[in-house]
């Protein structure tokens, strides 16, 4: 039962982006297209699962004094692994994610889950937590990326949705840097309104 709870909490109640406001840098940077969001989400989820697994497995062996450096090494190892595998088998995606692949290392969600959850929970729960957080992060990115790609380019996952007439005069700002900030601001505000409604009813 607690396994399911650990799995699902990351998707809504403790969504790393909308509720905890973590991992903002890749979240804002790679959401120019849904494809990039999915790629980054998959990479981050993989690293999250692997690091949570190892940290939880060795949680009684790693001395607490050097635990943060150890976590960083573990995370950096898996990030480099993803980097190399993606470069070999998905070169186009690797190219468009660019510098944000090595930067998964400093994604606060991953270190945060290692330190805040895997550090003191059994292996299975830690993996469930990682999967939930990974899905939550990916979903959040897809939501923002959908708005940005649709408004800024008229497409969704590279499918032309709004037609070529729209594509000639799209709302370009959505896909540029300011659009990421402004749309995220509205999404957060909207989720606050939902939360208040729910709170009011109880």
């Amino acid at each position: 039962m607690s396994l399911i709870k650990d799995l699902t909490k990351g998707i809504y109640h403790e969504n790393p982006v909308f509720k905890l406001v973590l991992g903002m840098c890749p979240f804002l940077a790679v959401t120019t297209s849904v494809e990039n969001a999915l790629g980054m989400g998959a990479a981050a989820t993989f690293v999250l699962i692997c690091s949570n697994f190892l940290v939880s497995l060795f949680r009684n062996i790693i001395p607490s004094k050097v635990r943060i450096p150890c976590y960083i090494v573990i995370i950096a190892t898996f990030v480099t692994l993803v980097d190399m595998v993606m470069n070999a088998y998905l070169p186009d995606l690797h190219r468009s994610l660019g510098i944000f692949i090595p930067l998964i290392v400093v994604n606060c969600i991953i270190l945060g889950r290692a330190e805040g959850f895997a550090n003191r929970n059994p292996v299975l729960n830690s993996i469930a937590d990682a999967i939930g957080m990974g899905i939550g992060f990916t979903l959040a990115m897809v939501v923002l990326a959908s708005f940005r790609e649709l408004l800024g380019n008229g497409t969704w996952l590279n499918f032309n949705i709004l037609g070529s007439a729209y594509q000639n005069q799209p709302l370009l700002i959505a896909i540029l840097a300011p659009g990421a900030f402004i749309l995220l601001s509205f999404i957060l505000g909207f989720s606050n309104i939902l939360e208040q409604r729910k709170g009011g009813r109880q």
Binding site: I61, I62, P63, K65, V66, P69, C70, V73, I74, A76, T77, T80, L81, M84
Partner: peptide, 17 residues
């Protein structure tokens, strides 16, 4: 001891990579 453990972790990581 702490230093050795840290070194071991890094070594294993580097070898795997």
């Amino acid at each position: 001891k702490v230093g050795l453990i840290l070194m071991l972790v890094t070594l294993v990581a580097a070898m795997a990579l």
